[in-house]
Computed example of a mutant assay.
Amino acid sequence: MHINNLHKDGYDFKQLAKTLPELARFVINKVARRPTIDFSDPLAVKLLNQALLKHHYKLDYWDIPTGFLCPPVPGRADYIHHIADLLAGSNVNVGNIDNIVGLDIGVGANAIYPIVGSQVYGWQFVGSEVNPASIQSAQNIVNANPNLKNHLTIRQQFNAADIFKGVIQTQDRFSFTMCNPPFHANVQEASVGSQRKNTNLARNKQKRTGSISKKPEHSLNHLNFAGQHNELWCQGGEVAFIQKMIDESQHFATQVQWFTCLVSKKENLKGIYQQLAAVNAHEVLTINMSQGSKISRFVAWRF
């Protein structure tokens, strides 16, 4: 993980359970192993997030509605820290909090990126969202935490076909935009992806405990990899979404210093680079991130 990531040394479950006592009953202590939780248990994962956000980011309240994405905080934090590096490499003083404003496309019900960015760096954020339930959840988080109230403004995207249009206003100036786009092309593909993740979790749990899960296969879809359709899939999948984002970005070239977006699959980069060339992006970077054995990346461009 990034050297500045607060989670790079793993989870201190003893301390986290002190911060959030409700987590304690979900902590698994195995002989000769570090404490952990059952990551296939959605309640355990949500409580872990609540403990992390309370302990490291000083939140009094954080929650999400049932069926919405529960984000892995360390990986989300890495994206923020690498954006800080991107800005610093462009001679931006990342500590000058009065001048740094980020736009989170798809802030979601969890508002995780503005939480990390505001509490670690003091940045301001605008978060866009199409789902009214997500907007209400994110706004509840802001309203319940005094340290977020002056750092995050949520704007509804009324046209789901648009990304920046209808969100970026004439007077806006953003240091960066960021986005965790829908990965899949349709609901069937999203369901298969979620089931694969949960199957891997069940296999890892069996190796760890020696027991076989009794949960029926149809129950896998409601575990911690749940998500609303706009969080998981869109017509044409990730490539189509990012290409649309790139196409729109050229119309806001003077208002945004860096556009960025996560790319889940390395093989999708070719089509993304082609679209960036088509709009004559002045500079394009691909920034790799590593969390254990998982490699992720985001593409950054400017005009």
Score class of each variant (00 low, 15 high):
L6T: 05
K8M: 07
G10M: 10
K14T: 06
K18G: 03
T19N: 05
L20I: 14
V31G: 00
V31P: 12
F39H: 11
N49C: 02
Q50W: 01
K54T: 13
H56A: 00
Y57A: 04
L59C: 02
T66P: 05
G67H: 15
G75Q: 07
G75N: 14
A77T: 15
H81R: 15
L86T: 02
L86M: 08
L87N: 06
V92P: 01
N93F: 03
V94T: 11
I97K: 03
I100R: 05
G102R: 14
I105W: 03
N110E: 02
A111S: 14
I112C: 12
P114I: 07
I115P: 05
S118Q: 08
Q119C: 08
Q119A: 01
V126H: 12
G127P: 06
S128H: 06
E129N: 10
N131M: 02
N131L: 01
I141W: 08
I141V: 13
N147F: 03
N147V: 15
L148A: 04
T153E: 12
I154F: 01
R155F: 07
Q156F: 08
N159Y: 09
N159T: 15
D162I: 09
V167E: 05
Q169S: 13
D172G: 00
R173W: 02
F174C: 08
M178G: 08
M178S: 06
H184K: 00
V187W: 01
S191Q: 13
Q195L: 04
N198D: 02
N200P: 01
Q206M: 14
G210I: 10
K214N: 10
E217F: 08
H218N: 09
H218D: 09
L220V: 00
N221M: 15
H222K: 11
C234R: 04
E238W: 08
E238M: 06
I242S: 05
Q243F: 10
M245H: 02
I246Q: 02
E248T: 08
Q255R: 09
T260H: 04
C261F: 06
C261W: 03
L262W: 00
L262N: 03
V263L: 00
V263S: 02
S264R: 01
K265R: 07
K266Q: 09
E267F: 13
N268K: 04
Y273Q: 13
Y273I: 09
Q275F: 07
A278Y: 08
E283N: 14
T286L: 06
N288E: 06
M289E: 01
G292E: 09
K294H: 12
K294Y: 01
W301G: 00
